[in-house]
Amino acid sequence: MRHSVNRPPTPDVADDQEREQSLPETINIKMIESGEKERLMELLRERLTECGWKDEMKTLCRAYIKKQGRDNVTLDDLIQVITRKGRASVPASVKAELLQRIQSFLVSAAL
């Protein structure tokens, strides 16, 4: 294909999509660079421990291991068993607090 002498070739759409990051990717990068992601993770750990969620998940794991037998359980089995229940049992107040902190970060970062 010959290119015009007066203008550069039009870039392919696929090339543009590879160069441009999606909004969630951009937010994730900004949160990592600023250290906000690690602060949010620490806050989440604290809140889940405070509300007893962590102990509840530990109890579920122990009950599953006891039921199946110690030698018959893998980490993948445990993850599959407790993931859905674990996500569903995170208190709404913890979710709301994290959401508020993320929104505040986005406003302050002007994203």
Results as ranks from 00 to 15, higher is better:
residue 41 M to L: 13
residue 15 D to G: 00
residue 90 V to K: 01
residue 4 S to V: 05
residue 104 S to D: 14
residue 30 K to Y: 01
residue 35 G to C: 06
residue 7 R to S: 13
residue 88 A to W: 02
residue 22 S to K: 10
residue 73 V to Q: 01
residue 39 R to S: 13
residue 28 N to H: 09
residue 25 E to F: 01
residue 101 R to I: 04
residue 76 D to Y: 14
residue 62 R to D: 14
residue 47 R to A: 10
residue 41 M to S: 13
residue 10 T to Y: 05
residue 64 Y to A: 07
residue 37 K to H: 01
residue 62 R to F: 14
residue 93 S to Y: 11
residue 83 T to V: 03
residue 110 A to I: 12
residue 14 A to K: 14
residue 9 P to D: 04
residue 48 L to W: 05
residue 3 H to Y: 14
residue 78 L to A: 02
residue 43 L to H: 05
residue 90 V to W: 03
residue 57 M to E: 02
residue 4 S to T: 04
residue 2 R to I: 14
residue 5 V to T: 03
residue 35 G to E: 00
residue 14 A to Y: 08
residue 40 L to V: 05
residue 73 V to W: 15
residue 64 Y to F: 15
residue 77 D to E: 09
residue 80 Q to R: 11
residue 66 K to P: 05
residue 8 P to K: 07
residue 54 K to N: 12
residue 13 V to M: 10
residue 99 L to A: 12
residue 34 S to K: 03
residue 35 G to T: 04
residue 101 R to N: 08
residue 4 S to Q: 09
residue 73 V to C: 02
residue 50 E to F: 02
residue 94 V to I: 15
residue 85 K to E: 11
residue 80 Q to V: 08
residue 111 L to K: 00
residue 106 L to D: 02
residue 3 H to L: 15
residue 66 K to E: 15
residue 25 E to G: 03
residue 11 P to V: 04
residue 108 S to H: 11
residue 12 D to A: 13
residue 82 I to S: 04
residue 105 F to S: 01
residue 29 I to P: 05
residue 89 S to R: 04
residue 85 K to W: 09
residue 108 S to Y: 05
residue 95 K to E: 12
residue 59 T to I: 06
residue 62 R to N: 13
residue 55 D to T: 09
residue 71 D to V: 02
residue 50 E to M: 10
residue 79 I to R: 02
residue 71 D to H: 11
residue 30 K to M: 10
residue 39 R to W: 04
residue 108 S to E: 15
residue 104 S to V: 04
residue 46 E to L: 11
residue 60 L to Q: 11
residue 107 V to C: 05
residue 108 S to Q: 15
residue 38 E to W: 03
residue 8 P to T: 06
residue 93 S to L: 10
residue 70 R to T: 14
residue 12 D to F: 08
residue 11 P to N: 07
residue 69 G to F: 08
residue 11 P to H: 02
residue 76 D to E: 15
residue 31 M to C: 02
residue 16 D to K: 08
residue 18 E to G: 03
residue 98 L to I: 12
residue 34 S to R: 01
residue 26 T to N: 06
residue 103 Q to G: 06
residue 55 D to F: 12
residue 98 L to M: 12
residue 76 D to T: 13
residue 49 T to A: 13
residue 81 V to M: 01
residue 32 I to W: 00
residue 30 K to N: 03
residue 20 E to S: 09
residue 44 L to C: 12
residue 47 R to Y: 04
residue 109 A to E: 11
residue 38 E to N: 08
residue 95 K to V: 14
residue 62 R to C: 09
residue 1 M to A: 11
residue 73 V to G: 07
residue 78 L to T: 02
residue 10 T to S: 11
residue 106 L to P: 03
residue 7 R to G: 09
residue 106 L to W: 06
residue 88 A to L: 13
residue 97 E to F: 05
residue 33 E to W: 04
residue 99 L to C: 08
